[in-house]
């Protein structure tokens, strides 16, 4: 589904990730850990081509990102739900329209009942008409999660999705991601939350990736 081959990326002061090679097979569940600034967000951005590798190749759904047309990138992103750390929305649109936006840009109509159900599930049913700037950090994160899964994507990438959530909401988020994984979707979560990882491992065959020494390694039993 996503394959890194000898991938290097950096921002000018030396490489942040160097010679990374790994594969995220379809239907897998991975956590990505590492200290702040280690490159977790960079790794995720490489996965949906918000960043391009400066060396090596990244393949998304079997296509080398450096040879993909801009339309092909857009089509690939429709199959990837992303919960960004900064949770950007279109501030002039109501929350419900923002959540339905991935369907809108794909030329599809959101089913009002399903949209209502999804908002209720993330605890935002009372905020459907609210504008994003009026939401708290946690509410924005839940809205971002709803937006990421509304198209039932083949893969979900989440960057610190529980950073602003309480434990109960974190568990609900995890339950959703586990359910999606059981349906065959591929999940990759960048997180510092060890409790979340332990809980997930008790429910699903989740593997842990750790960024260390500018490369990504499979973590062992020392987690």
């Amino acid at each position: 589904m996503i394959a890194f081959r000898n991938v290097t990326h950096g921002y000018g002061d030396g490489p942040l990730l160097s010679d990374v090679s790994l594969t995220l097979p379809p239907g897998s569940f991975h956590f990505l850990t590492g200290p702040s600034g280690a490159g977790k967000s960079t790794f995720l951005k490489l996965c949906y081509r918000e960043l391009m590798p400066i060396a090596g190749t990244v393949e998304i759904f079997g296509q080398d990102v450096s040879h993909m047309s801009r339309d092909a990138v857009a089509m690939a992103r429709r199959k990837i739900g992303v919960v960004h750390q900064d949770c950007q929305f279109l501030d002039h649109l109501p929350l419900a329209d923002n959540v339905a936006l991935p369907l809108t840009v794909a030329g599809r109509e959101a089913n009002p009942e399903e949209l209502k159900e999804l908002l209720a599930w993330v605890g935002l049913s009372g905020h459907a008409r609210a504008r994003p700037p009026s939401l708290s950090g946690g509410e924005r994160q839940r809205a971002a999660l709803a937006r990421a899964v509304i198209t039932a994507p083949e893969m979900v990438l989440a960057d610190e999705p529980t950073g602003n959530l309480d434990w109960d909401m974190s568990q609900r988020l995890l339950t959703l991601l586990v359910e999606l994984n059981r349906m065959g979707k591929t999940i990759l979560i960048a997180t510092h939350d060890m409790n979340l990882i332990r809980t997930a491992k008790s429910q699903v065959a989740a593997r842990v990736l750790r960024i260390r020494d500018r490369t990504v390694q499979h973590a062992g039993a020392d987690l």
Partner: peptide, 16 residues
């Protein structure tokens, strides 16, 4: 710029 970036990241084509 932010609107355009957000739209692109959720799968909007340039033409859209």
């Amino acid at each position: 710029g932010q609107v355009i970036r957000t739209l692109r990241l959720i799968g909007a084509r340039d033409g859209y």
